[in-house]
Computed example of a mutant assay.
Amino acid sequence: MRGKLQLLLCAFSMISSVALLVSGCSQDKDTEQAKAEEAYVQEIPIHLESGWAVGGIASNGDMAFCLLTEDVPMTLNLRSAKLCAWDLLSGAETVLYEYTNADGFYINELQATANEVFWVRTEGEQCAIERLDLATREVQMIEQYNWGGYDVLLQCDGSYLTWYRLSDETAFIRGYEIATGTLFDIAEEVVADFPFIRANISDGICAYAVDQGGERKIQVYDLFEKKQLREIPLDADIALFNIVADRERCLYSILKENTVDYRIFVYDYGDGKETVINEDESMYVFYWNYDDGRLFLNERNDNAILMKTLNTGETSIISNQGNHLYILSRITSDGSYIVLDSANEVIPVLTLIKAS
């Protein structure tokens, strides 16, 4: 299953399994910074050597993080991993954490906040969610499971960490309040049509699908208040690929005949109306992310990052010009957009976009 996860999520830009080779973590002294219409783009080239790979990226607004991994030959396991960090103002580079086990392990799902970095480590038959304190560099285990064939995919908005727990029979969503270190259940019975679905979270809001007496719905949940905000009815045969909600609207895309449909649906709480974004079949949306009224589209035909402002309907290109191949996109805890440009397999580029 872990090998399938690696291949599928590379295809959907969810986790890292790209053959990027590195011996250490070094930054080009001339880190490129440019204006791209309504966005500030900062690019950090990662110089690579044989035997290593990029295993994840993250940022907290002040620092950018890259997880570097060394494979055990002819296996899906890792031999070594190191977490590198760059100060986004000075460009100073640091190795924050290193781990080696010749028997093999797997570490991925990098997430960052102002004070900590989170990841998932799978070793033997145990899967653990771990937290690195940036001040002390100590690692703390948050929760551990028997692996069971289903990988844990993390999401974070700076206040909460969320993830699905899946088995062959059940699916539920866990939450972790970062400030207090409190674990809790968000939803105990949910529908997971896609085994690699994420429990997306934005400003303390999480959304997920449920099936109640044959009626399928999206439930929008407020983690701060620990209560359900609203329900959005769905057709009974709809299978969901990606769901993101905030305090104004809910966005989702669907699986159609086991493939990702190109359309993105937007449900506005104010008027209860549902609209469709990207009805143009000629636009190839590789993956999408949403935050605070801004929809980020990884458009593969032109290999560009587009930003659509939902309140105005305006769409702009926010990536730099040139040859790109963007993967691993996500919203950071400070509201920026981070993505890895893998057009150059030897020198991939960690790309941070601060959109206005």
Rank of each mutant, 00 (worst) to 15 (best):
L8F: 13
C10M: 10
M14K: 12
S16W: 10
V18Y: 11
V18A: 10
L20V: 13
K29V: 13
Q33R: 14
E37S: 11
E37V: 06
A39Q: 04
Q42N: 10
E43A: 12
I44W: 11
I46E: 00
S50P: 00
G51L: 05
G51D: 06
G55K: 07
G61C: 02
F65V: 02
L67V: 08
L67M: 15
L67C: 05
M74Q: 12
N77I: 01
K82W: 07
A85Q: 06
E98C: 05
N108D: 15
E109T: 11
Q111S: 04
V117D: 05
T122W: 07
T122S: 13
T122I: 15
C127H: 00
R131E: 05
V139L: 05
Q144D: 03
G148L: 08
L153W: 09
C156K: 01
D157W: 09
S159E: 15
S159Y: 02
D168N: 08
I173N: 01
G175T: 07
E177A: 03
F184T: 03
D185N: 09
A187D: 04
V190R: 02
A192D: 02
P195C: 11
D203I: 03
G204K: 01
G204I: 01
C206I: 12
Y208R: 05
A209T: 14
A209P: 08
Q212H: 09
G214A: 03
R216C: 04
R216S: 04
Y221M: 06
L229A: 04
L234E: 07
N242C: 14
N242L: 09
D246Q: 10
D246N: 14
E257T: 13
T259K: 11
V260A: 06
Y262N: 14
R263D: 03
D268M: 04
Y269A: 02
Y269E: 05
D271R: 02
E274H: 06
V276G: 00
I277F: 06
W288L: 09
N289Q: 15
D292Y: 13
R294S: 14
N301S: 07
L310M: 14
E314L: 10
T315P: 01
G322V: 00
N323P: 01
S329T: 13
T332E: 01
D334L: 01
I338D: 01
V339T: 15
L340N: 11
L340G: 09
S342Q: 07
V346E: 15
T351W: 03
L352S: 05
S356Y: 12
S356G: 11
